[in-house]
Computed example of a mutant assay.
Amino acid sequence: MDWRTRIVIRKAEKGLAPEDGDGEFEWFLFGGILGDDPPRDRTSELRVLGFPTRHLGPVQMTTDTALGVTKKVVHDKIPLDKIPYVDFPTICFNPKESVEMPFRYIADEKNEPILPLGMRKLLHEDLNKSFDF
């Protein structure tokens, strides 16, 4: 199966919602973000202990994106389905160099992914690395 068509198995029944920021939760623990394929379900330890769970949607996102989405939902009161996303964006550096990111990102007003500071430069530098055996 193509990696683009895989749906992340969500163990949490409920998605994160704006009302989750109204005092129900004091802390948010993130697990399964940038996880393995197949998933190892590392958050099962929290479920076994009875912690309430929420998911952030069906597409895997980077940790910084998950934090940004959580802030938008619980602090800014924006529902998960109202946040603009871009899935699997291609970051172009010039007409001959680009990299496709296999994650979901929050989209800016130009529908470009919001990347952490320095990430674009790091990705471009990584294009010049090779496997030396």
Rank of each mutant, 00 (worst) to 15 (best):
G57N: 02
L117E: 13
H55C: 11
D41P: 00
V8A: 12
T62Y: 05
D2F: 11
G57H: 01
T43V: 11
Y105F: 15
D37M: 12
D37F: 14
V99Q: 04
K71H: 14
L16S: 09
L127Y: 02
T63I: 10
P89E: 05
G32H: 02
D81V: 03
T90Y: 06
G23N: 01
D36S: 15
E24P: 05
E100M: 14
H75Y: 11
T63D: 06
L123S: 04
E125Q: 13
L46M: 13
T53Q: 15
T5Q: 13
A17Y: 02
G57V: 00
D22G: 07
K96S: 14
R120Q: 03
D20H: 15
F133A: 13
G21A: 09
R40Q: 13
H75F: 11
K71N: 13
L123F: 06
F133V: 10
P102T: 02
K110T: 11
T70I: 04
L117P: 00
I7W: 05
F133C: 09
F51G: 01
V48K: 03
F28M: 01
L34F: 07
N94G: 10
L115T: 01
V8G: 04
W27A: 10
D36P: 03
K77Y: 05
T90E: 14
P89G: 10
H124F: 09
F30D: 04
F133S: 11
I33E: 09
D41M: 10
P39G: 09
A17C: 10
I9T: 13
T53H: 08
P52S: 02
D108W: 02
R54P: 01
V74T: 05
L117V: 12
T5S: 13
G118Q: 03
R4W: 08
G68V: 03
I106F: 11
I114D: 07
D81I: 05
C92Q: 14
F103C: 09
L123Q: 02
E97N: 13
E24A: 13
E26S: 14
A66Y: 02
L16N: 02
E97R: 15
F88V: 06
A12R: 04
D22S: 10
I78L: 14
F103P: 02
Y105V: 01
N94W: 03
E13G: 06
P113W: 03
E109Q: 13
P113V: 02
H124C: 11
P18Q: 04
D41L: 11
I7M: 07
E100K: 13
F28D: 00
A17I: 04
I78Q: 07
P89L: 07
A17V: 06
L56D: 03
V99L: 08
M1P: 03
G32Q: 01
V69D: 03
H55W: 02
Y85S: 05
T5G: 10
L122V: 08
S130G: 15
R10Q: 14
D36W: 08
R54Q: 05
V74I: 12
F28G: 01
Y105L: 09
N128W: 08
K71Q: 13
L46G: 05
F133M: 08
P102M: 08
R40Y: 11
V74C: 04
